[in-house]
Design a binder for these strands. Structure first.
Lengths: 219, 219, 219, 219
DNA sequence: AATGAATGAGGCTTCATTCAT
DNA sequence: GATGAATGAAGCCTCATTCAT
């Protein structure tokens, strides 16, 4: 955990260098319209679906002209990737903050799961976008999204590594495989919840998911 | 376990009644060109990506005229759904066959995982299509695909139910959640493997995945 | 009037030589399937509209295979033209028969109008086809249809000529213009009736139409 | 006649509210490209025939990009309907203007016929389009065209009603039937003229047509 | 003569992006 | 910086006709 505490935001540090941004004068990202457009994109995509979310619709929702979008984003793809970066960045930061004062790997994992579910529950539009809509994007975008996702996965790896080293988890744990189980499970539970119109409280599932992951199916 | 043995293939029995098919004279599905076109679609989609797979490309790969496609499929969407039905049907059948003579739930689960990975490994085109390309289809298609997927999930449920009843798994197992873990994990492992260009042997991961699912992370 | 009586069917004499027919052995036209297909076309076009009347639909209604159509008709266009020829031929013959024993031009005109309306009233499918559907065909077909129509117009001309010579009508009548009034009026009344779903009895309008045509609007 | 004089253009007042047009800011209809495209459509349809008039051809003729068409019209159909509305509106307005200072119904009718023929003679492309090409459009379009046509027919009705009341025409005139005679005759004369490649001067026929309609065939 | 499976040309429309104002 | 009118490429599907059986 020391690692983690030593560089609490480190893992995210170059998340802001990915996409479109001209000079280093004033970052586009810090101008109000940048976030305004991203938030508009979340709403529009959640409400209309990925394939019916034209740039013009996002512009209208953001209250700007179509052309203005292109002053802040290279192209439509860039909106989506930036959206994911922006939101995922906050996501990872929040989870890290949550885990900051906990050293037990199992407990950290529970915080991670809870935070994950909580954040989805807090923004139903965003939940739809990340769990369903963004996945219909083409391979290129999904690859770039995966790059952003890597931050999150590294976080999971850290927890697993911790647990293995401290003996909380199996000492010879295949971290890569375990991470795929952890992420795969959380993601599947989240997606199922969104597909079912978020009609139950997903945060209530956190404990059960945590237990399954840690203890497995065995009796 | 008796259930399972009594109707080993039952759950799949009407998988072939889904989409496009006129009378009961000679099923379109049984004509050679039907499979020919589906196989062509798998190759074309795997090689060009979902969004660059024009009907004309599929027709050319299948060695038929564009219009011929429409003698066997209602529209482009129907090709995709039928593709998934056809392949998923074989998929589920194969897994069921594999599990037929095994009564232990944990062993059944291992067979399921192994079979799943084996089938993906056996057809690298199909693996790309199911793990990556088909997911960028629109909501309508995904809904219908989910319907087909349900057969598979029911199969998982049966195994889990078995295990819970026979005491191999936790007797108070939350089947729904457990199924989401099982499927989520398998799917994530498979997707990761495809994203990494299938460059390692996924079947080697089956044992590890099975172990993780059954025993969890605990030491 | 002698003219008229001398060659009672003359005007129709080459109506049967228009379109498709191979040798002079056995006329295609006399084989049962010829009329069978034409009648099928009338029904299909009336019920589905011109643009939704595919050859395959006509074939099915006629109880023959698609290919069989082409043993009796050169192409789809030929079905339509033949349909019009066949029906228009009967039409003109019937009107001629009706007028045969009447010498007064005004009375002849009344018979013509009455017969015209009566025949439309007798076959509601045919009425739809001739008044509405066939008019959406392309210019080529309409030109050929007009050629067939010419027989009918010649008949009108004869009556008008008669009337002018016998002093029943204006002696310096512009036959061409008068014929356009007669046909235009009859056609417009018929079309209006069909557009209104044939929901009143068009034959009741014959007297009024005749009176208007003969006496005009004047008080 | 007072009615007529009091609201001479009234019947047309909402002819411009028919199809595609968003707010009331700046009407699409008033922008130059709107008329530009409609005029292009008239020329293209007249020269190529309805079925060979692709949107791209119209765009090229109008000197705009294909996509620009869709900034002004909902779809291809909307071009045709708007075309008819626009031209028919001018048509009816012109006729009304012409009749404004004439109180005698017979004289009004003569003006109507003359104006009708004159306008067709003034634009040979438009004549082809309205008399021939537009009639092969599908039922939906024809229905909407008929709605626009109704303005014209109401105008005819007014004249006939006038005439009947003032004793110029038969006082017990069946207006509906009379209107069908008037319109049927004018339309047939116009169509015949167009089919014959407009090779004679149709305006010369106005007097004869008027005479026939008012006095009928009687000697 | 009759069949019907196979063919393949052809066009409307959407929407991300640009650029003159 | 902001605008929004204009652009133009790209693809699914229908259906008249053929021809091997």
């Amino acid at each position: 955990m020391h690692q983690e505490k030593d560089k609490p935001t480190g893992a995210l540090k170059d998340l802001n260098s990915g996409s479109y941004m001209k000079g280093d004068e004033t970052l586009k990202k810090d101008k109000p319209k940048y976030k305004q457009i991203i938030d508009a994109a979340v709403v529009v995509i959640a409400e209309n679906g990925y394939h019916h979310s034209q740039v013009s619709k996002i512009a209208k929702q953001a209250g700007v002209a179509d052309g203005t979008i292109y002053l802040y984003f290279k192209n439509k793809e860039d909106i989506l990737i930036s959206l994911f970066e922006e939101k995922m960045g906050q996501f990872v930061s929040a989870i890290k903050r949550g885990m900051e004062h906990e050293e037990d790997a199992a407990a950290q994992l529970e915080i991670l799961i809870k935070s994950h579910f909580q954040m989805l529950a807090d923004d139903r539009h965003l939940a739809i976008v990340t769990q369903l809509e963004l996945r219909q994007s083409n391979k290129d975008i999904r690859l770039k999204i995966n790059k952003v996702l890597k931050e999150y996965l590294l976080l999971v790896d850290e927890v697993l590594h911790n647990g293995a080293q401290s003996g909380v988890f199996q000492t010879d744990l295949d971290i890569r495989l375990a991470r795929q189980m952890v992420f795969g499970t959380i993601d599947e539970v989240a997606t199922t919840w969104v597909i079912n119109d978020q009609k139950y409280d997903i945060t209530n599932l956190a404990a059960g998911v945590h237990s399954l992951i840690v203890r497995g199916l065995s009796s």
